[in-house]
Simulated scan of single mutants.
Amino acid sequence: MSTAKALRGRPRSEAVERAILEGVIKLIEDGVPLAEVSIELVARTAGVGKSTIYRRWSGREALFCDALLAAEAPDPDLPGTSVRDDLIAILEAVRRRGVVNRSSALLHNVHAQMKSQPRLWEAYHATVIEPRRRRTNEVLRRGQETGEIRADLDVDLVNDLFVGPLLVRSVIRPGADLPESLPTDVVDAVLAGLRPPE
């Protein structure tokens, strides 16, 4: 959802928003460096005026974040049956993004370029990465409340213990396997070490 959708005003055209987001993706697919993808260039590519973009997004950082989110599968609904099941669903989404990033030169290229643009990286971190971490932390806190995870552990550290192995295989070891069983294997292995002593 675009960051500007909460603003009041006339109803937004989903077709126009889609054309703008697709314009960003097309420019990057055509090899335009991220630093050169300006609001003006996106407007020309999408066939809209710059004001049409600024009515929907506060700037290029917000626009790029929404374009990247549009290029990814949405985050899954959590089953809510147990902390274990919710963690497996979260890690399966991470695994799928890793598979897609490997097969998509576009996403791989964008993530690499974003790190050289601090404002864009900060916006991506705030609007994409942090909400996902908060969601996982909520599941982990619930696990502490139900006794599935030790209450004395730092939730941020535990989050890293679950997500870290998939990120290592997706980013640091791009040739490593990302089998369908990986989320379950990671969750079961980490949970075994985090359970309170009986």
Score class of each variant (00 low, 15 high):
80 G>N: 14
68 L>M: 14
112 A>C: 13
124 Y>V: 03
82 S>Q: 02
127 T>I: 15
35 A>F: 12
89 A>M: 05
62 A>H: 08
73 A>L: 12
139 V>E: 05
98 G>F: 04
88 I>P: 10
93 A>F: 00
149 I>W: 04
113 Q>R: 08
86 D>V: 07
113 Q>G: 05
57 W>M: 04
34 L>I: 09
85 D>W: 01
129 I>D: 14
49 G>N: 06
55 R>I: 11
46 A>P: 00
78 L>H: 06
134 R>K: 12
114 M>F: 10
102 R>T: 04
152 D>E: 15
59 G>P: 06
68 L>R: 03
76 P>I: 04
128 V>K: 09
135 R>Q: 14
64 F>P: 01
46 A>I: 09
90 I>Y: 10
105 A>D: 05
44 R>G: 04
106 L>V: 13
50 K>Q: 14
67 A>K: 00
88 I>T: 06
75 D>S: 15
149 I>N: 06
64 F>C: 10
139 V>F: 05
124 Y>Q: 07
114 M>D: 02
78 L>S: 08
134 R>N: 12
115 K>T: 01
128 V>P: 01
35 A>Y: 10
126 A>K: 02
72 E>W: 01
108 H>Y: 07
143 G>Q: 06
99 V>L: 15
70 A>K: 01
138 E>H: 08
64 F>M: 13
76 P>F: 03
48 V>Y: 02
65 C>L: 09
35 A>P: 01
134 R>F: 02
52 T>N: 07
124 Y>E: 06
36 E>M: 09
116 S>Q: 15
71 A>Y: 00
30 D>K: 04
60 R>L: 11
50 K>P: 11
63 L>D: 02
89 A>P: 06
44 R>Y: 03
55 R>M: 10
82 S>N: 02
124 Y>S: 07
49 G>W: 02
73 A>H: 15
79 P>F: 14
93 A>E: 08
59 G>T: 06
115 K>A: 01
140 L>Y: 11
78 L>V: 09
71 A>R: 00
125 H>S: 12
61 E>V: 11
112 A>P: 03
77 D>R: 14
91 L>V: 05
137 N>E: 15
86 D>I: 00
148 E>S: 11
113 Q>M: 03
56 R>F: 05
104 S>C: 04
